[in-house]
Amino acid sequence: MTDETMTGETTGVDAVDAPMTNDQPAVDGADARGGADATADVPATANTDDDTATAAGADADAPHVEPLTATYERLRHSTDAAELHEFARRPLPDRGEQAAFSRATALLEAVAGNPHTPEEDRVFLASTMPFPNVLVKLSEDASPAVREAVAANADDKNWLVGRLTKDGIPAVRDEALRNKRTSWKMRLEGAQDPDMDVDTLDFLSRLGAELEPDANVVLSSMVRRAVALNPNASQEILERLSTDSSDEVVHAARRRLAQ
Rank of each mutant, 00 (worst) to 15 (best):
Q235Y: 10
L219S: 10
D244Q: 03
P231L: 13
L219R: 09
V218K: 15
E212R: 13
R224V: 00
E212T: 06
S246Q: 02
V223Y: 07
P231K: 15
A228Y: 12
A226F: 08
L211I: 08
M222E: 11
S246D: 15
M222K: 15
P231W: 15
T243D: 15
R240P: 01
L211S: 03
A228F: 09
M222V: 00
D214Q: 13
L229D: 12
V227M: 02
L211P: 00
S246I: 00
L238G: 11
I237G: 03
M222R: 11
R224L: 00
A233S: 15
I237D: 02
R225D: 04
L241A: 14
S221I: 00
E210V: 05
A233I: 03
N216Y: 02
V223G: 07
E210R: 08
A233W: 03
E239K: 10
R224M: 00
R224P: 00
E210A: 06
E236N: 08
D244E: 12
V217F: 08
E212I: 02
E210D: 12
S234D: 09
E236S: 14
P231C: 15
M222T: 02
R240K: 15
G208N: 06
S234A: 07
A228L: 06
E212N: 13
G208L: 06
P213F: 01
A228G: 10
L238C: 12
E210S: 05
M222N: 12
D214T: 15
P213A: 02
V217D: 12
D247G: 06
D247I: 01
T243Y: 11
R224C: 00
M222Y: 10
A233V: 04
V223H: 07
R224W: 00
V223W: 07
N232V: 02
A209V: 03
D244W: 01
A228S: 11
A228W: 03
N232T: 07
L241K: 13
S245Q: 12
L238N: 07
A215T: 02
S245H: 13
R224Y: 00
S220D: 04
L219N: 09
E210K: 09
I237M: 09
G208V: 11
S234P: 14
D214H: 11
P213H: 02
A215F: 03
D244Y: 04
S246A: 15
L229T: 10
V217H: 11
T243R: 15
P213M: 03
S246R: 01
A226Q: 06
S234C: 10
V223A: 08
V223C: 08
R240G: 08
S234T: 14
E236V: 10
N232I: 10
V217Y: 09
S221Q: 10
A228K: 06
S245C: 01
D244F: 01
R240W: 11
R225P: 00
E236P: 06
E239I: 05
L241N: 11
S234Q: 09
S234K: 04
N232D: 11
A228Q: 10
L211V: 06
N232S: 12
L219K: 13
P213W: 02
R225I: 00
A233E: 04
V217Q: 11
E210M: 04
E210C: 00
G208K: 09
P231S: 14
S234W: 05
Q235W: 05
D214G: 13
M222G: 05
Q235S: 10
A226L: 08
S246F: 00
P213V: 01
S220M: 03
L219Y: 08
I237Y: 08
